[in-house]
Structure formats: C-alpha cells, structure tokens
C-alpha cells in the first residue's frame, strides 16, 4: 500500500533534476596543469509538480539559462540526472529523445531574434507540428488557427512575417509556437524582459490563462522578482551556479533566509514614493565562475560571513517544510 502511494507521489512531479552539473572546459590545450572549467551549473537539484510554475531567479551569469537548456538537453550535461515523466533525459538515445521533444518546449527571451525572418507566422507556428505529426493533415490548418486564437493572434496574421509585428505580438507568436505541439512542460527563459510593462501584463495573463486551460507546467526563468512572485508557485534562487534557497513562493517572500535572497528582495524598487526601505546593497560584482570563492560562493559579498564560510561548502538543508536553504547561518544549531 505504501509503495502505491509512493509511486503516486512520484508521479506528481513532472520533472526532477538531481545533482545537475554542466561544466564548460576553458581551454582546449592545457599542458601540465589540470584542465580549468567554468562551472556554469554545479550540483543543482529541484522538483517541479505537475501543473505548477517554478520560478528561477538570480543575477545574470548565475546559470539559470544553462539549467533550462540542460533540462531540454539542448546541450549535453556533465553530470546528474534530469528525470522527466519518469525517464532520464540525459541517458535516452537521440532517436527516442526526438519523440520526447514535443512534450517539452521553450520560449526564448528575445522575440526579435528567435523568430525566423523568412517564414510567415503560420509556418513558424506549424513547422514543428508538421514535423512531429501532432495532428492529422486534414486538421492541420484548423489546429494552427485555434492555437493562434488561443494566444490572441488574429487569423489574418497567418501569412504575415515577423517584422510586421511589435515585440508583444512576437512574443505571442513564440508562445503559440511552443503551445502548438501540445507540450506538457514549457521553459520560459526571460520571456518578458524585452517587453514594456503594459505588454508584460498581457503576456503574463496569457500564460496564466493557457496554464489554467491546458495544465502546462512552467519553469519560469527571470531576474524580475515582482513577475516571478506573481506567476510562480515555488521559487529557486541561484547564485553562481548553485541553488542557495528553494521553497514555496510565500515562504521565500515572507521569510527569506539566505543573505543573498534577502539582498535580492530588498533591491527591487517599490512603486511607492513614500515607502522607504532599508536596503541591503551588495558590494561588488558577482565573482568570476572560473575560480569561484572557496567554501560558500556568496561569502565575498555577504554581510554575515563567518570563518566556516570559507572552509566548507554549505549544503542545501530543509529549514522548514518546503523551504531549503544553503547557508551556514542556519546549519549551526
């Protein structure tokens, strides 16, 4: 009985990432000394429940995008497991992987460079549908038009080219392209950062509507915390290739534990001139990932740096239910 429940519980998670590692070798030729690596993603683990949204935040260069790309196996990973719907994506052969592809889609950051300028909108959205034979040939056109309608694109756009559209409309086209394959899981890599505030709200609403209607699972990568707070159910905070804090949205925002999360939250400008915050301003820049600081990677910018921080790498530990932190401040007692 217990095993049955266990299996059911496992099935709740559409994606599980275990100890994901992605190293980029620095130089091809290294004589005498050991090869140097950029540890873009170093030992990251998390799970995403079916039909929910996980937000991934962090500064640029912290490895958020690499995590996204590794999950989709857009590049091979150095180590770890990516278990999607019970299958380890890192291990399955390319021919099988191809069959899995329609189930996982990606929406890219820049709607200006991610759409082919030589293809009309209908073809951009439909290319992969044809390739993977998602719908029978007779239903092809009606399927594309339905997807376009779902994404707020008018049917007469079918024969137009991307350059005729504004940024917001283009992002709708990218979303339609992802959605047309009837995926289960969509990675959104900063889909809003190239858009204006009023258009951002439209796209967020569109994504929420689609999730409600079709039950998509999102991994939402962004550096805009207010958007992440709005759209996600769980949030992971990354710093220099490692996960420093992960938990439910409410817990992270109401009770941030890691000093980096605290600083990140306090750095968001608030749209109210009368609210004065006591802001934690981090000094300096994010260190180079080629030779990150020993021990805790955040210690060079941390206010609460202790002796132990330079010696030991803090482990991700559960502090309260559904809230994990990697910091020595909380591991001592």
């Amino acid at each position: 009985m217990a095993s049955m429940e266990n299996i059911k519980k496992e099935n709740d998670y559409i994606l599980e990432v275990r100890n994901l590692k992605k190293y980029y070798p620095l130089s091809r030729f290294s004589l005498g000394k050991s090869r140097a690596y950029v540890k873009a993603v170093d030992d990251v683990s998390f799970k995403i429940k079916r039909g929910t949204t996980m937000g991934l935040v962090g500064e640029s260069g912290c490895g958020k995008t690499t995590v996204g790309r590794s999950i989709l196996r857009l590049h091979d990973i150095t180590g770890g497991q990516v278990i999607f719907d019970g299958q380890d994506l890192a291990k399955i052969p390319p021919s099988k992987l191809r069959k899995m592809r329609p189930q996982m889609q990606m929406i890219f950051q820049d709607p200006y460079s991610s759409l082919s300028p030589r293809m009309p909108v209908g073809e951009i959205i439909g290319e992969a549908v044809k390739e993977h034979k998602i719908v029978p040939k007779s239903e092809y056109r009606s399927h594309i038009l339905k997807v376009m309608r779902d994404c707020g694109l008018q049917p007469q756009y079918f024969y137009r080219y991307p350059h005729e559209f504004s940024g917001g409309q283009r992002q709708r086209i990218s979303i339609a392209r992802a959605v047309a394959l009837k995926p289960k899981f969509i990675i959104c890599d900063e889909p809003l950062s190239a858009l204006d505030v009023s258009i951002q709200a439209q796209i967020i609403n569109l994504m929420k509507d689609l999730q409600e209607r079709y039950g998509y699972t999102y991994l939402f990568i962004s550096h805009d915390l207010s958007v992440v707070e709005y759209i996600s159910d769980t949030i992971g905070v990354m710093y220099l290739g490692s996960m420093v804090e992960i938990g439910d949205k409410k817990r992270i925002f109401d009770n941030p534990m890691h000093p980096y999360t605290k600083a990140l939250l306090s750095a968001v400008p608030i749209s109210d001139p009368d609210v004065k915050m006591n802001r934690i301003i981090l000094s300096g820049d994010i260190p180079s990932p080629v030779n990150p600081p020993s021990g805790c990677k955040f210690r060079t910018r941390c206010q609460h740096c202790m002796d132990i921080c330079s010696r030991e790498v803090p482990k991700l530990k559960e502090y309260e239910e559904g809230h994990m932190v990697a910091c020595h401040l909380y591991s001592q007692d």
Partner: peptide, 19 residues
C-alpha cells in the same frame, strides 16, 4: 499592470491592445 505582492485578485490588470 505592475505585479506586486499586494495583489488581491488572481488576474493582473493589463492595458488592452498596443500603441
């Protein structure tokens, strides 16, 4: 249309259409 923590309803207000 700017998301903030104090949101009550589930939907974000958006200005319809475009410039």
């Amino acid at each position: 249309s700017k998301p903030s923590g104090k949101l009550k309803d589930n939907r974000l207000y958006s200005i319809k259409g475009q410039v």
